[in-house]
Computed example of a mutant assay.
Amino acid sequence: MKTFHLADPDATARLGATLAANRPAHAVVHLRGDLGAGKSSLARALLRALGVVGTVRSPTYTLVERYPLATGGEAWHLDLYRIGDPGELDYLGLDSDEAVLWLVEWPDRGRGALPAPDLEVRLAVEGEGRRAELIACSDAGARWIETCEALVLTPE
């Protein structure tokens, strides 16, 4: 596990860019944290760094937003806060092979219906900024964190 202090929105953008620059070819990220912890902000920063242009919406009401990536495939950003039962995910068309990146907010609500994560990011408000904990959940996730360490971000 690596912990970072994100002092401001620019630090969140740097973390998103770092994750984007080093992501595995296929990756699943679980984003955890209370309301307002910065889950959607980090997802938006990561998607922007991957070249997504135009509006990057929070999928609070749509549940899933799909973004084509220049490198091929799609990034899927899910917000499962409004899901009452994991079975509801069956109606979202998440069974295709188009997704090369899953960014899942409130993943516990989809337990058993989602692919296993490679990386878990726990976000929390900390003073004026945020605290981000990156936890590897697979070998690919562990390598991902290792490559992030050497870049702009300095772990606490």
Results as ranks from 00 to 15, higher is better:
Ala49Trp: 02
Pro9Arg: 12
Tyr61Ala: 07
Glu128Ser: 04
Gly38Phe: 09
Cys137Gly: 01
Val28Asp: 00
Thr147Met: 13
Glu156Ala: 09
Glu146Gln: 15
Ser138Thr: 07
Asp8Leu: 08
Glu156Tyr: 07
Val52Lys: 08
Trp76Gly: 01
Gly38Tyr: 10
Asp139Asn: 11
His5Glu: 15
Gly129Ala: 10
Pro59Gln: 04
Ala17Glu: 13
Pro155Thr: 13
Ala75Gln: 04
Asp8Trp: 01
Thr62Phe: 05
Ala45Ser: 15
Glu98Ile: 00
Leu89Val: 06
Trp106Asn: 08
Pro24Glu: 07
Thr60Glu: 13
Tyr81Arg: 12
Gly141Leu: 07
Arg32Gly: 00
Val104Gln: 12
Glu156Gly: 08
Glu156Trp: 06
Ile145Val: 15
Met1Asp: 13
Gly112Asn: 14
Ala140Tyr: 07
Ile145Trp: 10
Gly93Leu: 08
Thr3Gln: 15
Asp108Ser: 15
Leu92Asn: 04
Gly129Lys: 02
Thr154Met: 01
His77Gly: 04
Asp34Phe: 03
Ala45Val: 13
Glu65Ile: 12
Pro86Lys: 02
Asp85Arg: 13
Ser40Asn: 04
Ala150Leu: 10
Gly127Lys: 04
Asp34Met: 08
Glu133Ser: 10
Pro117Gln: 14
His26Ser: 12
Val52Arg: 10
Pro9Gly: 09
Leu134Lys: 08
Ser138Lys: 08
His30Gln: 14
Leu92His: 03
Thr62Arg: 12
Thr71Pro: 00
Ala25Tyr: 00
Ala150Arg: 14
Arg14His: 02
Arg131Tyr: 00
Tyr67Lys: 09
Ala132Asp: 03
Leu46Ile: 02
Ala142Ile: 03
Gly112Trp: 14
Cys148Glu: 03
Ser40Ala: 12
Arg44Cys: 07
Arg122Met: 12
Trp106Phe: 03
Tyr67Cys: 12
Tyr61Phe: 15
Trp76Pro: 01
Ala113Asn: 04
Glu65Val: 08
Leu92Ser: 05
Pro107Val: 11
Arg122Cys: 12
Leu80Phe: 01
Val56Ser: 05
Trp102Glu: 01
Pro107Cys: 11
Gly73Met: 00
Pro59Ile: 07
Trp102Lys: 00
Thr154Asp: 05
Asp8Ile: 06
Pro68Val: 14
Ala27Ser: 12
Ala75Met: 06
Leu151Met: 13
Leu151Lys: 10
Leu80Gly: 02
Leu47Asp: 06
Gly36Gln: 11
Cys148His: 01
Val52Glu: 07
Ala43Gln: 08
Gly16Val: 13
Asp108Gln: 15
Leu35Thr: 10
Glu88Ile: 12
Gly141Ser: 08
Val53Gly: 02
Leu153Phe: 01
Asn22Ile: 02
Lys39Ile: 10
Leu15Trp: 07
Thr55Glu: 15
Ala20Cys: 07
Gly38Gln: 11
Leu42His: 06
Ala13Cys: 07
Arg143Asp: 14
Ala70Trp: 09
Thr60Ile: 11
Thr62Tyr: 06
Arg109Met: 08
Asp85Ser: 12
Leu47Lys: 07
Ala99Ile: 01
Pro86Phe: 02
Arg82Thr: 11
Ser40Glu: 01
Asp95Gln: 05
Ala124Gly: 10
Cys137Pro: 00
Ala17Gly: 15
Val56Asn: 04
Leu101Thr: 06
Arg32Met: 06
Trp144His: 12
Ile145Leu: 14
Gly127Thr: 03
Asp95Ala: 06
Ala150Lys: 11
Ala13Pro: 01
Ala124Lys: 06
Gly129Ile: 10
Leu80Lys: 05
Thr60Phe: 06
Leu47Asn: 04
Thr60His: 10
